[in-house]
Computed example of a mutant assay.
Amino acid sequence: MSIPVFGLGTFRLKDQIVKDSVTTALELGYRAIDTAQIYDNESAVGEAIVESGVARSEIFITTKIWIENLSTDALIESLKTSLDKLKTDYVDLTLIHWPSPNAAVSVAETMHALVKAKELGLTRQIGISNFTVALMQEAIDAVGAAEIATNQIELSPFLQNRKVVDFAHQNNIAITSYMTLAYGDALKDATIIKIAQNHNATPAQVVLAWALQLGYAVIPSSTKRTNLESNLLAQQLTLTADEMSQIAGLERDGRLVSPEGLAPDWD
């Protein structure tokens, strides 16, 4: 995988709250930070990174292009604005945040614009987010699967998105899981709690370890130092085949993120 497997998400965190989260995460050893234009926190994230004293070359920054900026004319300029806010000359990964509603801008146009941004040195890698199998095929047809570093999708024990995962893996495209803890609902599940007890681990560690063992990258967010530190330890937890099977059985098509006007026709 050409992207870090463990990072910090910043969705819904703004101003001093996101700055504190990023600062603490970097102190604890996180080296991948995920943000987006629509999060309205790129400036605060950038400030935290600069003030951390950690070398820019050691930090993997991901941002995502909002739907208003998906056209050829808008994408590169919007990415330059993001770089200014993030106080960096480049980001490591730039994603299409959501496919253009009603295909107002074609996947091909945006993918070609992302390739151009990469050629200009504005981003090291490019990818997609919230893409279905059909949309992934459009992206592959446009620029080739080798150009697509990841598809960042909602994925949790309750929404395992297997069609998208299988198609991505067939094309050697990595999966990044967001909402892995299902807004905390997965931490209350009896099966996951029992597995956590077996390992003297937290439910969050179990869920994150499950995703990591399946080969996904994860980007959990938190504002609490104890949780940020604890989540990192998921990388050291190994679940048994039976425990992995038990979690696989929790699938219930439990999608939590499907904004009206943005969501595609899900697989």
Rank of each mutant, 00 (worst) to 15 (best):
V45R: 01
E47F: 10
A48T: 05
A48F: 07
A48G: 10
I49C: 07
V50A: 12
E51V: 09
E51R: 15
G53P: 08
V54D: 05
V54S: 04
A55C: 10
A55T: 07
A55Q: 13
R56F: 13
S57H: 13
S57V: 12
S57Q: 15
S57K: 15
S57A: 15
S57C: 09
E58S: 15
E58Y: 13
I59S: 08
I59T: 12
F60W: 13
F60A: 04
F60L: 08
F60R: 07
F60C: 04
F60S: 06
F60P: 02
I61C: 09
I61Y: 02
T62C: 08
T62Q: 08
T63V: 09
K64W: 03
I65N: 03
I65D: 03
W66H: 09
W66R: 02
W66Q: 05
I67W: 00
I67T: 08
E68Q: 13
L70N: 00
S71Y: 03
S71C: 02
T72Q: 12
T72E: 12
T72S: 13
D73I: 00
D73A: 12
A74C: 10
L75S: 11
L75R: 00
I76H: 00
I76L: 08
I76G: 05
I76C: 01
I76F: 02
I76K: 04
I76V: 11
I76Q: 05
E77Q: 14
E77A: 14
E77D: 14
S78I: 02
S78T: 10
L79Q: 10
K80Y: 11
T81Y: 10
T81V: 13
T81W: 07
S82Y: 07
S82A: 12
D84A: 12
D84Y: 04
L86C: 10
L86H: 05
L86P: 04
K87I: 09
K87R: 15
T88W: 01
T88G: 00
T88L: 00
T88K: 03
D89Q: 09
Y90H: 11
V91R: 07
V91P: 03
V91S: 08
D92G: 01
D92E: 14
D92S: 11
L93D: 02
T94M: 09
L95W: 05
L95A: 10
L95M: 12
I96L: 08
H97P: 10
H97N: 09
H97W: 08
W98C: 02
W98N: 01
W98G: 00
W98V: 00
S100P: 05
P101A: 05
P101L: 02
